[in-house]
Computed example of a mutant assay.
Amino acid sequence: MDRLIQNTLIDLFAEHGVALEPDEDWLLTEGDDYPALRGIWHEGKDGGMGRLDLDIVLDEERTIEESFGGVGGGKAGCRDALDSFARNDFHVVLAACWHTVNKDKLAVHELTAGMHRFNAYIGDFTLRGEKDAPMEIPEDGLSALEAAISTAPLTNDVHWIRVFYGNVGDGKTQVEVLLDNEPWAAGHKAVASVDWPQHDRYYSLRNFIALVPVD
């Protein structure tokens, strides 16, 4: 499975002009130690959903940690999780970590948080769930989050935000917002305040944002 993960990631990055070199479990940026990338697949129990953990090492002290569920067993589940990464996080991390920006695949805004200015690389909200689940994203979905970012005590470093919203049904929801891999209360409050579409079947929305200091 490690070879499948490495080969898929090498091909994905190569399609966008970034060469990665395998070094045991890691993929290193050509000619440099950082950023470095590693993927680890965890098979689901009793035929359940597996999980792909991706670590993107920015420097000796900071690592982006992301996880993606994969439907199906073995290679099929792993490929499904890799596809989720390609649809959700990929273009954001490509812009923030490898300085390759495709404005057709993400939005770029300049935001101020405290004394610092950032370029915000904002990926699309990606949907998983029933085919007839709602697709339209509320207009305040991002604005509420950007307002929370503007008051966050951020340092003049790269930061990343992962948003997960799940519509369970019967009015029940799941919300998780992480800032630099840790639960972020202000972001959670912002996302929970949005009037997300309700549906009688399960669906989830995921979004990834990176903040890079403006030179």
Rank of each mutant, 00 (worst) to 15 (best):
A190R: 07
A147Y: 10
V194M: 13
E110C: 11
W160K: 00
D53Q: 14
E176D: 06
A120G: 05
R87F: 09
L178E: 02
H159R: 10
K189I: 13
K75M: 09
G74S: 07
I5E: 02
D33L: 15
R117M: 08
V92G: 01
R79F: 13
I122A: 03
G44A: 09
M135G: 07
K75C: 07
D180V: 03
N207L: 14
T126S: 05
Y203N: 09
D32M: 13
A210F: 02
K105G: 04
F90A: 01
W41L: 14
F118W: 03
P138L: 15
A76T: 09
Y203Q: 08
G72V: 10
W160V: 02
D195V: 15
G48W: 13
K189T: 11
W26D: 08
D124Y: 03
T155Q: 07
F125N: 12
E30D: 12
L179S: 00
N102F: 12
D33T: 14
T126I: 10
A81R: 03
L145I: 11
L179I: 02
H188Q: 10
A95W: 00
D11M: 15
D195Y: 13
I149N: 04
H188S: 06
V191S: 02
V214W: 05
V191N: 05
A86E: 14
D124P: 06
S204G: 05
T173C: 02
G48I: 10
I64T: 02
Q198F: 10
A192C: 08
G17P: 00
G73I: 11
T151V: 09
G48S: 13
R79C: 11
L52A: 08
F68Q: 00
M1S: 06
I10E: 06
H16Y: 11
K189E: 09
L28N: 09
S150Q: 12
N88G: 04
E65K: 15
A96N: 00
A86Q: 11
S143I: 12
D104Q: 04
I149F: 08
A147R: 11
P138H: 09
H42G: 05
G39K: 01
F85K: 03
D104P: 01
L82K: 08
S67G: 14
R87G: 06
Y121V: 04
G141M: 12
V175C: 05
L178Q: 04
R87N: 11
R38Q: 15
I161W: 01
N102C: 07
V71R: 03
Y202V: 04
V158K: 09
D23E: 15
A19T: 13
G72T: 10
S143G: 06
V108R: 11
G44F: 05
D89Q: 10
G123E: 01
K105W: 13
I137H: 03
G31A: 07
A113L: 08
A148G: 08
T100Y: 05
N7D: 15
D180P: 00
E136R: 12
H188C: 04
L27H: 03
A186D: 03
F125Y: 14
A192S: 12
T112K: 14
H91N: 08
A36F: 01
V214T: 11
D89E: 14
L9A: 13
G141S: 11
A185V: 13
F85S: 01
S84R: 07
V93M: 08
E43R: 04
T126C: 05
G39N: 06
L4H: 07
I64G: 00
W184C: 00
L94Y: 00
A19N: 07
